[in-house]
Design a protein around this nucleic acid. Sequence first.
DNA 1: CGTGTTTATCGTCAGGGAGACGACTATGAT
DNA 2: ATCATAGTCGTCTCCCTGACGATAAACACG
Lengths: 269, 269
Amino acid sequence: MSPYDPSAYPPFAVTVDLVVLTVRRHALCTLIVKRGEAPFQGRWALPGGFVREGEDLGAAAARELVEETGLRAHDPGDPPPVPGNGAHLEQLATYGAPDRDPRMRVVSVAHLALAPDLPAPRAGGDANSARWATVGELLGEDGPVGDEEAMGEGSDREGGLGGGAEPLAFDHAQILADGVERARSKIEYSSLATAFCPPEFTVGELRRVYEAVWGVALDPRNFHRKVTGTPGFLVPAGGTTTRQGGRPAQLFRAGGATLLNPPMLRPEV
Amino acid sequence: MSPYDPSAYPPFAVTVDLVVLTVRRHALCTLIVKRGEAPFQGRWALPGGFVREGEDLGAAAARELVEETGLRAHDPGDPPPVPGNGAHLEQLATYGAPDRDPRMRVVSVAHLALAPDLPAPRAGGDANSARWATVGELLGEDGPVGDEEAMGEGSDREGGLGGGAEPLAFDHAQILADGVERARSKIEYSSLATAFCPPEFTVGELRRVYEAVWGVALDPRNFHRKVTGTPGFLVPAGGTTTRQGGRPAQLFRAGGATLLNPPMLRPEV
DNA sequence: CGTGTTTATCGTCAGGGAGACGACTATGAT
DNA sequence: ATCATAGTCGTCTCCCTGACGATAAACACG
């Protein structure tokens, strides 16, 4: 074993990159920023930055999240201090291929953030250098369930990247794919899908989160039976809402349970 | 966003640490090494070392694994080139608290390795500075299923660490706990438990792997029905063996399936 | 050589969860 | 008034699971 010699280690730079996921207009979206410097100048990339001296990895990710979105992160397990204006944040994986940054050796600790629908991205002062993009256009997946008609009428559709978009900078497409896969599997066996919802939400809104993340259609009746029958998943908030149209729906809050047993079942194929 | 200035980044050292798990005598065990240098000199720790210049993170972990155990790693997904003398290796998580190493800023990318039962640990030339320890004694868990009588008669029981062992160096107890939890959950929905088995194994041997990792007793009949009925999990190898005593058991090889659907169900408490 | 022990393997049965789908309710839009 | 939309409650069947009986095939004894 090589001796542990602190004076003879190769130096690395350590960064954090963020996969910030949200559900907008029935589609799973992620936050991307336009790079201002080389390499990959002008290309879209995941938000991120260097870990500072004396700064913990999770703290660096939380700091970047605030800088990019204004969202405060809360650790998994803790109840959100003010539910709704916080995001779930967890470590995703670490990427350190020797040539992933052409200038120097950089190891990036990617984090995954799940947030409710946000009004608009705010880059640090620079407004139109950050935007929400559907993961479908970035990863070349098929459009989730249809619903193409609901797209293409918003106010933030000027960033280029139409159909087969230009790939993300660095290895960020891989990081994004890993983050999406983590989210897709984690909402199966945990109550994490509520992180995509506002503090109070209806069963239908939660179902549309599952449908957007998984890209499938779920039976409203079976879904309703399942989530309301899983102890600790949802607690009634007391009111009703008609913001989705149709019959008023009961409002719920996320319950204390974090692990769902039995899990939600993702329809196969 | 802070400008991406490669000349003004704080320097880090990057290491890989290994959680090498195996099943020995019906108990989940992990490989630990005795530290030769400060800090934590003389204490037990997870094996690991610095990532070299130009070396990928996974390659560094694979190199450490060979140095410590002689096992060659194969990526998940790939079939083992020579099944049985390889180990499953995957990235676990990254630990980078500012004060986790008292001398300098070190970020450690922990990896998880699952290996079949090995004859004896071989440290790099130094024989008795590495040993297998049950995760129970390291993490203070209750002994798995009983079976205490089967312990305490082996040939490698001289390394100290009797009951409430001295804790591992650094944050390695946390890393180990995370690795064990990853293994425990991952054998639920993947065929990864076969990584603990020799190339050909019986249903009973596979069941004892589950029992050791989960620390529970499973019904042999239901287990047999479940694993032989899951398509792609096991393929018959053609022969039988009586190495476990009793009636000869059919030999199987790991099938091509990596994800089990429906998953194995871990009995709840 | 029988008997007991151990392990493997096949069957049976009851209960629960999930998919498929019918029916009814309560709102807004036309 | 009628329709469209969304929510909520039930029902029915299938399949999986857990519990457990029964048989089979080896070895270890006396």
